[in-house]
């Protein structure tokens, strides 16, 4: 059974038409990854799925329920953890307070367990969000989403702007979430590393799905991987 099904999403920002009929599925207990260039519509897809930028056409089904028109907090309360692009931790709150914001759904994840997973955060409990490094902010953003005890975790470019060592750590944590039985939908620019941990892959371009298949299959197509990884590596060197 699919954890999440998106069917023919058309999403707009004002008058600009961003998604042109995106359909995808997230299988239960698997990591599904959405790859694509900057501006391909990856973030918009995620925002449509959680109701932050509702699609104008199409249907979103999560855990078998039609959530297309639901407000974001109801989607989240269903058990959907969301780690937004740019981490979006609360800069004015301490680490400890950041972890008090999410709805407490029953489940194994508690603040204590988040601190166990990320000992670095435990050391910085009383620091404010704005004082954290990028890696620490990413950990906090993931930990915060875990406190919701999600059955589906959606991450938007968790490796963005992080040092290679930290990137590896983040991917390790994402893979571990799958082992804990959480379904994962991942958006990434880091093609090689995300293919390594993913089960299923979608490639998005100009608001359309241009490829879908197993991660292993795509990873084996070295030429294609090099083309995609090269494209994103180039973009990484561009000034922000």
């Amino acid at each position: 059974m699919s954890t999440l099904v998106a069917d023919g999403l058309h999403t707009y920002y004002g008058k600009s038409h961003i998604l042109h009929g995106v359909s995808l599925e997230v299988a239960e207990g698997k990591i599904t990854t959405l790859l694509g260039r900057n501006g391909a519509g990856k973030t918009t897809t995620l925002r449509s799925l959680v109701g932050l930028t509702p699609s104008r056409e199409g249907k979103v089904t999560i855990f078998g329920r039609d959530t297309t028109r639901w407000p974001t907090f109801r989607v989240a309360a269903l058990g959907v953890g969301y780690v937004p692009e740019g981490r979006k931790i609360f800069p004015n709150l301490t680490v400890d307070d950041n972890l008090k914001v999410p709805l407490q759904r029953p489940g194994p994840w508690t603040a204590a367990r988040v601190y166990e997973l990320f000992p670095r955060l435990a050391e910085r409990k009383e620091n404010r969000g704005r004082q954290l490094s990028g890696g620490e902010q990413e950990m906090l953003s993931i930990g915060r989403a875990l406190l919701l005890n999600p059955k589906l975790l959606i991450l938007d470019e968790p490796s963005q702007g992080l040092a290679p060592l930290i990137v590896r750590e983040v991917f390790r944590v994402v893979a571990r979430m799958r082992d804990e039985g959480i379904s994962v939908l991942l958006v990434e620019q880091n093609v090689r590393m995300s293919l390594e941990i993913s089960d299923q892959v979608y490639v998005l371009d100009d608001g359309k799905v241009v490829h879908s298949g197993s991660a292993a299959e795509l990873a084996a197509d070295e030429e294609r991987v090099r083309a995609m990884a090269g494209a994103s590596a180039e973009e990484w060197t561009l000034p922000e």
């Binding site: 407000p71 907090f73 999410p102």
Partner: peptide, 25 residues
Amino acid sequence: TRIGVRIRAGTLDLETVSALGVNVR
């Protein structure tokens, strides 16, 4: 209080508070 913390968080970024399952209405 937890609600107080959520109000302070929402002051800067209500969208993210809502994405964390809090009934922002």
